[in-house]
Amino acid sequence: MVIDMHVHPVLFGPICTDSKRLEFRKQAFGLYKSSPIPMEQVIAVMDHAGVDKAVILAEDYSAVMGEPAVSNEEIRLIMDTVPERFIGFASVDPRNDNAVSELERAFRTLNLCGLKLNLSHLQMSPDDKRLEPLFKLCEKENKPVMFHSGFSWEPDSPSKYGRPILYEDIAVQYPTLHFCLAHLGWPWVDELSMLLLKYPNVYTDTATVFMDSPKNYYEQIFMKNMAPGWLQNNLMDKVMYGSNLPRFRQVRTKDGLMKLGLRQDVLEKLLGGNAKVFLGMEVRDYAY
């Protein structure tokens, strides 16, 4: 099974019926010239890329923006259109007083499967005390967290809050909390690799083609920035396929990974096996 761990459903048809809301969301994400995509097209694109399931991410900066960019209800709405193809992650703004109760509602009532936080967009350090109750709830409910990590394209989003090393304390303080430092933490790939190597609860995804073609970019990251053996022999259980749709195409990013010449067992983990473990769909029966 191929799972795309990183999809922003900002332009998915069912949540784009209100033109004001659509414009607000496009501004928030910096997707200025892009247009809504009907659901049939979304599914056709996934089928064409050979993606079985996609993790769709909510985004909430409502303490400043007044409303979530993609709300938890909108994630649920998209999931309900084709339930077998989507896994929904909630988002809450930690600056709101009701952040914890809203996250509880997203998990228990809307049945969302994890929490998405972009601390760059929130301009919040990972050790901010307002995050602690959210981490505790996720740990208690056994829900993973997806952090934006590394460089951010979004407006008003300083990349310093996405620096991987800043998340080490979370890995230590919440050892049963699974979290993903997305986008390979680029440009801090070495820092990220250290965290992946050391902490069993830290993962990453490949939603990171910021320059060049996916094929060349992944070759640079996985075969040059990292030595070829790092991914295949050391980090093979920790890296998950993510496209970053709509910023990058699923078919191209997946193709770029497949052309790395990885061992088949590593490729299978990368494209879906590791995501299954991260999402709690499967338990590993071994530990190194």
Partner: peptide, 19 residues
């Protein structure tokens, strides 16, 4: 499809990658 084209970068006005 695979060739070192110049038009392979982020387009900030779209918020997406060219490619």
């Amino acid at each position: 499809t695979d060739y070192p084209y110049v038009h392979t970068h982020m387009l900030p006005s779209y918020g997406t990658c060219s490619g």
